[in-house]
Amino acid sequence: MPDVSVRPATPEDRPAVERLWLMFRHDLSEFRGVLPAADGTFRNDRVGCAFAGPGWAPYLLTLGERPAGLAFVRGLDGPARVLNSFFVARGARRRGIGLRCAREVLVRHPGPWEIAFQHDNPAAVRFWPRVARELAGDAWTREQRPVPGRPELPPDVWISFTVRP
């Protein structure tokens, strides 16, 4: 396994995280039919929340010295943690890096977790239940929930489970 690490993202990491965010949103645009804004960017309000919002934690995933992905956790001050965003760059996929990084992020915050993904995203449909099984065995649930404020979109799939300390 290459030298993979997960660490809290610092303000100095923000430019790299913002560029990774663009790649993440580009990947998701396939499943939501979203185009970039006129300046070529996607909405990035969650980046600001992740770095400054109460109850949030941004993480940078690295492969050696190079940025390979990101994870944003929210709800740290609520009843359940939510993996708000998780992205691994295409060049780092299919080597177990995503599974290892997801596990590292989740175990840093024991307790109830919720993770959403799109049913139309076949990689996510395979990946997130695997993460849930690895961390919670059979003690996890799956349900569909509408996308808030977006009735034209199909519902997201949400999985819920508890990470034990």
Rank of each mutant, 00 (worst) to 15 (best):
Pro148Thr: 08
Pro11Arg: 12
Asp156Ser: 08
Arg43Thr: 15
Cys101Gly: 15
Gly53Ile: 08
Val125His: 08
Pro129Phe: 01
Phe117Lys: 00
Gly137Trp: 06
Ser29Phe: 10
Ala102Pro: 05
Ala136Gly: 00
Leu153Glu: 14
Pro155Asn: 00
Pro79Ala: 14
Ala136Cys: 03
Leu76Arg: 11
Leu70Arg: 11
Pro154Leu: 11
Gly53Asn: 11
Val73His: 02
Ala132Met: 02
Asn44Met: 15
Arg90Trp: 03
Glu104Arg: 15
Gln118Val: 10
Leu106Tyr: 07
Arg126Cys: 09
Ala16Phe: 08
Glu134Pro: 01
Pro155Asp: 03
Arg7Thr: 12
Val17Arg: 10
Val157Cys: 13
Trp56Gly: 06
Phe87Leu: 01
Asp156Phe: 07
Gly78Ser: 13
Thr10Tyr: 13
Gly78His: 06
Phe42Ser: 02
Ser29Thr: 09
Asp27Phe: 12
Ala89Tyr: 03
Gly64Ser: 13
Leu153Ile: 07
Arg32Ser: 12
Trp113Arg: 01
Arg14Ser: 07
Ala80Asp: 10
Trp56Ala: 11
Phe72Gln: 03
Asp45Val: 06
Asn121Lys: 02
Pro110Asn: 04
Arg150Glu: 15
Arg126Tyr: 06
Val34Gln: 15
Ala139Trp: 06
Trp21Asn: 05
Glu134Leu: 14
Arg66Leu: 14
Asn121Phe: 06
Val4Ile: 15
